[in-house]
Each structure stands twice: as C-alpha cells, then as structure tokens.
Simulated assay, not measured.
Amino acid sequence: MAEDLSIIQGNKAEQYTSLLPQIKALITGEPDQVANLANIAAALKEQFGWLWVGFYLVKGGELVLGPFQGPVACTRIRKGRGVCGTSWAQAATLVVPDVEKFPGHIACSSLSRSEIVVPLVKNGEVFGVLDVDSAELNEFDEVDRKFLEEIVSWIE
C-alpha cells in the first residue's frame, strides 16, 4: 500500500497538528514495531527536515540502534552515557539546546548541534528512546516535547 504524507508549512505546532493524525493512521492496525518505528522516523524527518531522527531500543542492557532516517549513527549506547543513555537512565525527556555543553555528549555526527531524546516507556520500564538531532542550535523546545511525547505514547 502506498502512503503519502501531507507536508505543511507554518509554525511548529501547526505542523505537528497536521502530522500527528497522519502518523496515527500509519501505525494503527500495524502490529510490527519495526515497521511502525520506521514510518514514525520517516514522517518526522520528512515534515521537519531534521538532521537525524530515529530510535534506539534496549537490548541486553544497552541501547541498540533501531529504525532511523539520516546519516549513519552510533550502534550501541550504554545506560547513563550521552543524551540517549541519560534519558534512558532518568526515564525523562531531555531537550539539549547545545550538545557541546552536555556533559558526556556522544558525537555520532559532528553536524549535530541540538537534540531532543524522548524515552519509550511501557509498564513503567524504558524500552527505548526516540532521538532527534538538528544541525541548528536551540532547535527543540516545549512544543517538540509535548508532541513527540504524544507520538511515543502510541508505541507498544
């Protein structure tokens, strides 16, 4: 089945408001987690044009690279390490305006300037993270936090 997104311009909240029902439609009824994560990453990357959008999943005590869109990435991240590992350890969304100022930042890409990481939680346990990187400083804010947290709440 061919799927097309309706990409809109406008402020960030308007873009998310248009995109969320489209993402919901893409994943509703699809039981395969990898397929859903891949479509979510693609939809976000296509709408916003960020440098990197993807998922890391907890496997064997590490975050392991999952579906993503963007340049090649770090394959494994330990708990508490970098923005992704810290989000996992704290079970909290982290908004980082300047990755160079984040203690222990892992530079998977030298082009990354700011980042948001949202944990995927089920039954009180973090089972992965959504990681989004931008080539611009201060790209992410509370609008991103709100909408990205809503999106990840749909992931099982």
Rank of each mutant, 00 (worst) to 15 (best):
A92P: 06
E30M: 00
V118C: 00
V121H: 07
T75Q: 15
L57V: 11
G10T: 11
K101P: 05
L148R: 07
I7M: 10
N11M: 02
Q90K: 15
E142A: 14
V143F: 05
T75L: 12
A42L: 13
D4K: 14
V143M: 03
W154V: 02
Q47P: 09
G82E: 10
L94T: 09
A89L: 15
L111D: 15
Y56E: 08
G124I: 05
I27H: 04
R78P: 01
A2P: 14
V132H: 02
V152W: 05
R81P: 01
G61V: 10
G85P: 05
S87Y: 05
P31G: 01
R113Q: 15
E62P: 00
V118N: 00
G124D: 09
F55A: 02
E14Y: 10
E139T: 07
V64D: 04
S110F: 04
A13H: 07
Q22F: 00
Q15C: 10
R76H: 14
V118R: 04
G54I: 06
E46W: 00
Q9R: 11
P103C: 10
F102G: 04
L20A: 02
S18K: 09
K79C: 13
C74W: 08
L137K: 13
N123T: 12
F147K: 02
R78I: 02
N39H: 13
I40E: 06
M1K: 09
D131G: 01
R81D: 14
L120V: 06
A2W: 06
Q33L: 15
I155P: 06
G104P: 08
E139K: 13
E156S: 05
E125M: 06
L148Q: 09
A135P: 00
E142R: 05
K101C: 09
L20G: 01
V58N: 00
F68W: 02
D98K: 11
D4E: 15
Q22K: 00
E149W: 00
